[in-house]
Computed example of a mutant assay.
Amino acid sequence: GLGWIAQIGMFVLLGLLVTPHEMGDDIVPALLIGLVLTMVARPLSVIASLLPFRIPWQEQALLSWAGLRGAVPIILATIPMVSGIAESKRIFNIVFVLVVVYTLVQGPTLPWLARKLRLGESAGAADLGIESAPLERLRGHLLSVAIPKGSRMHGVEVGELRLPPGAAVTLVVRESKSFVPMPTTVLRLGDELLVVATDPVRDATERRLRAVGQGGKLADWLGVGDGGTEHRTQHRTGL
């Protein structure tokens, strides 16, 4: 975001240096210079620069067609103006016209040229390396928790559950829609939670969930703590 703001500010400042009515005499010279750059100077410089690297001619052709675009050439053109060089204002105007023309003409044609040169085609999408790891391998447990009517977990934020380290609420299903909760997500009646807990904290996690279900976010203060009645379930815990 800061980068975009800086670029916007830079273009605004460069625009303040442009005097449109003074560019009339520089448009034709700028177009002639741009033609020479595009057809002669840039292709020769690309070939000379990439010759040792054995780059395919299709890529060299695409690089040759890409011209001056963006704010960098305009910023470089302000250096003669600051240095007080003669005709520096005309140099700035010519560069400005070149950048505008290249942006409007060459920019939109680059994808078309890449397709013609068959540079945009890929051999095929690479398959994703996805590994399915069972919870047994991770020594973990997946707890499915439902918040029924009358549960004091209603209105409690996920962060206020204060689950032991090694346990986390990974998914909330609400009105047939699932989403990943934030610490500030407020739980509601009818929500279904998926809680992942490592093996050492599995029992403590279930006790804590039951304590919050009975006493809400103030379970510890109301005397309903993690040492409540244990009731192990294999698939679902009702709070």
Rank of each mutant, 00 (worst) to 15 (best):
residue 223 G to R: 01
residue 146 A to D: 13
residue 212 V to T: 09
residue 125 A to R: 15
residue 186 V to G: 05
residue 215 G to C: 04
residue 114 A to V: 06
residue 191 D to E: 08
residue 146 A to H: 11
residue 234 Q to H: 14
residue 158 V to L: 05
residue 148 P to I: 06
residue 124 G to D: 10
residue 221 W to N: 13
residue 172 V to E: 04
residue 162 R to W: 08
residue 228 G to L: 06
residue 135 L to Q: 10
residue 201 V to D: 02
residue 187 L to F: 06
residue 181 P to W: 08
residue 151 S to K: 00
residue 136 E to M: 13
residue 129 G to K: 13
residue 143 L to N: 05
residue 160 E to P: 03
residue 167 A to K: 00
residue 172 V to A: 02
residue 202 R to T: 12
residue 134 P to V: 08
residue 152 R to G: 01
residue 124 G to E: 06
residue 156 V to G: 02
residue 225 G to K: 01
residue 129 G to I: 11
residue 121 E to Q: 12
residue 182 M to V: 14
residue 227 G to Q: 12
residue 165 P to K: 10
residue 119 L to Y: 03
residue 125 A to L: 15
residue 132 S to Y: 11
residue 180 V to C: 06
residue 187 L to G: 03
residue 211 A to F: 00
residue 127 D to N: 15
residue 216 G to S: 01
residue 187 L to D: 05
residue 122 S to V: 15
residue 134 P to M: 08
residue 157 E to R: 13
residue 155 G to E: 05
residue 218 L to S: 13
residue 124 G to Y: 07
residue 151 S to G: 04
residue 125 A to E: 15
residue 182 M to A: 13
residue 216 G to F: 00
residue 202 R to I: 10
residue 134 P to A: 12
residue 147 I to Q: 03
residue 232 R to G: 10
residue 166 G to L: 00
residue 180 V to A: 14
residue 224 V to S: 07
residue 207 R to S: 06
residue 178 S to V: 02
residue 213 G to I: 00
residue 211 A to T: 01
residue 131 E to F: 11
residue 221 W to Q: 15
residue 224 V to H: 05
residue 203 D to A: 12
residue 126 A to D: 11
residue 169 V to M: 07
residue 233 T to F: 08
residue 115 R to S: 12
residue 155 G to H: 03
residue 167 A to Y: 00
residue 165 P to A: 04
residue 194 L to S: 12
residue 167 A to M: 00
residue 219 A to T: 09
residue 216 G to D: 00
residue 171 L to S: 11
residue 225 G to E: 02
residue 215 G to I: 01
residue 149 K to H: 12
residue 224 V to R: 09
residue 213 G to Q: 00
residue 134 P to I: 08
residue 133 A to F: 10
residue 144 S to Q: 14
residue 130 I to V: 15
residue 171 L to W: 05
residue 203 D to W: 02
residue 130 I to Q: 11
residue 231 H to I: 12
residue 121 E to K: 10
residue 233 T to Y: 04
residue 118 R to F: 08
residue 179 F to Q: 07
residue 178 S to Q: 08
residue 217 K to A: 12
residue 219 A to P: 02
residue 202 R to L: 11
residue 226 D to N: 09
residue 118 R to L: 11
residue 159 G to L: 03
residue 129 G to M: 14
residue 179 F to K: 05
residue 120 G to R: 08
residue 184 T to D: 12
residue 158 V to R: 05
residue 183 P to L: 05
residue 216 G to K: 00
residue 117 L to K: 01
residue 203 D to Y: 04
residue 194 L to R: 11
residue 142 L to P: 07
residue 136 E to W: 13
residue 164 P to V: 02
residue 188 R to T: 09
residue 234 Q to I: 10
residue 204 A to Q: 04
residue 170 T to K: 09
residue 141 H to L: 08
residue 190 G to L: 05
residue 153 M to C: 09
residue 216 G to M: 01
residue 122 S to P: 06
residue 230 E to A: 15
residue 129 G to E: 15
residue 119 L to Q: 08
residue 121 E to F: 07
residue 181 P to R: 07
residue 152 R to C: 02
residue 201 V to A: 01
residue 224 V to I: 13
residue 143 L to E: 06
residue 213 G to C: 00
residue 162 R to N: 09
residue 166 G to D: 00
residue 195 V to P: 02
residue 172 V to K: 03
residue 158 V to W: 02
residue 153 M to S: 10
residue 116 K to C: 07
residue 190 G to Q: 06
residue 150 G to F: 09
residue 123 A to S: 14
residue 199 D to Y: 07
residue 204 A to F: 01
residue 145 V to C: 07
